[in-house]
């Protein structure tokens, strides 16, 4: 499966899914006019990748989002849900959740992710430069 890349824009994050290396990056900000439209192809790509994952594969996801609007929130949450499901299915999946060290909401969101998703390993990490 080909790697998947979308460059960042003002309103959408960079998507860099290195499927060949099992490394998934998302970074930037997300407040597109229609979050559903923006995230739909990303969801499809991730779904196809996770379906074809060889047994016991180790997947590393890095999410470094500085801001996302309310409609993107749900969709980002669902992407992480897909990763969690893959982990439940026997793959080793880790999520590195980067946040601005001063952004309490983003830290809380990361803490809540740990509560919501019990199969993936979630690490909360401060963004070095914001």
């Amino acid at each position: 499966m080909d790697d998947f890349f979308l460059p960042a824009t003002t309103e959408t994050p960079e998507i860099n899914f290195g499927f060949s290396k099992n490394v998934l990056y998302i970074s930037g900000e997300a407040y597109p006019e229609n979050a559903m439209t923006f995230f739909a192809p990303i969801r499809v790509q991730l779904e196809q990748y996770l379906d074809r994952l060889s047994a016991g594969a180790q997947v590393k996801a890095y999410f470094a989002l500085k801001y996302f609007n309310s409609s993107s929130t749900k969709l980002i949450h669902r992407l992480i849900g897909m990763l969690d499901k893959a982990a439940e299915g026997g793959h080793r999946v880790s999520l590195h959740w980067y946040h601005d060290p001063d952004d309490d909401m983003m830290i809380d969101f990361g803490i809540d992710l740990r509560e919501d998703f019990r199969h993936i390993v979630i690490e909360l990490l401060p963004l070095e430069t914001v």
């Binding site: 609007n69 309490d104 909401m105």
Partner: peptide
């Protein structure tokens, strides 16, 4: 922190 929240609300 207030500036960040204000931007969130503004959008």
């Amino acid at each position: 922190a207030v500036r960040r929240k204000a931007f969130v609300v503004f959008v």
